[in-house]
Design a protein around this nucleic acid. Structure first.
Lengths: 144, 144
DNA sequence: CTATTAAAAGACAAAAAAGTATTTTACTTT
DNA sequence: AAAGTAAAATACTTTTTTGTCTTTTAATAG
């Protein structure tokens, strides 16, 4: 569904949203531990998201990653879009690059609905939405 | 959603189902042309599906790929399962390998529904189902 | 101002996926 | 039986994805 990069990105963003509620900044090491991801890899991913403005960062001591007001209202579709592009949302399920209403693949209309459901779900899901569940340990971002 | 291999596999299987309605056998070249795929690549994919019994094949002159009665009732989920495994149907959307009702990722329940929809759609879609549309050129398996 | 800290940038490496080519095997037609 | 055909098997190459490491830049604390 998502690329590995994108999976890590979503988990990291939820993690940061959760940990930086009070304006704190979170370092790469803590994030990597918190979501069970390779440290250098998630660093690279976050740098990319930072360049794209989905997350804020600050260098130096007490530095780290955090979200500003705008980032907080970011939804999961924004992250997927930034990392994997819109392929999942608009691409042909069978890989035809000319698939359209005028020239549909056999599954065009069926997939349209699925893709819409996925997009609606992600678009309607805000980063901060999980803070409660995470705190109460009703949901998890790592393996155990 | 699917791997490239799986996309080609589905398109090829639908193509074969369509072309071998009357028991004819279809060669790799014709298939590759019919679905706009790399010839050697689709050959390899079909050999794999043949080994797994999802498609029949015969060597030599007048040889090629075709479907027997059983294969005809094969649905798209069977193909996806054979090529990509069950990852799409049962895996965690965020890549946690220990994701479960007892230890859910934040999106576990939402994804559960999506995955079920995808599975139901594929499971409920038979190969031969598209013969009509394809013949009437209401649906296509290649780029133009 | 200096030392330290942490992200940014960019180069590198490994693994997996995608794609190609060659040789072997099996079947048919003559 | 021999020649020709088409899939099977297998080896190989390229590209993409995933993951790691080193150097540079920017911020802060002392």
């Amino acid at each position: 569904m998502f690329s590995k990069t994108c999976e890590y990105a979503i988990r990291a963003m939820i993690f940061i949203a959760n940990k930086s509620e009070d304006g704190a900044k979170i370092g790469v090491k803590e994030i990597a531990k918190g979501i069970d991801s390779p440290e250098y890899f998630i660093a690279k991913i976050l740098q990319d998201l930072s360049r794209k403005g989905l997350v804020q960062s600050l260098k130096g001591p007490t530095g780290g990653f955090y979200l500003d007001r705008k980032n907080n209202s970011c939804n999961l579709a924004d992250i997927v879009q930034a990392v994997d592009g819109d392929h999942l949302f608009v691409g042909c399920g069978l890989g035809l690059n000319e698939c359209s209403e005028k020239h549909p693949c056999p599954l065009h209309y069926e997939f349209k609905k699925i893709r819409k459901d996925i997009h609606d779900l992600l678009k309607g899901t805000n980063l901060v939405e999980f803070n409660d569940q995470l705190e109460k340990k009703l949901a998890f971002l790592k393996h155990r």
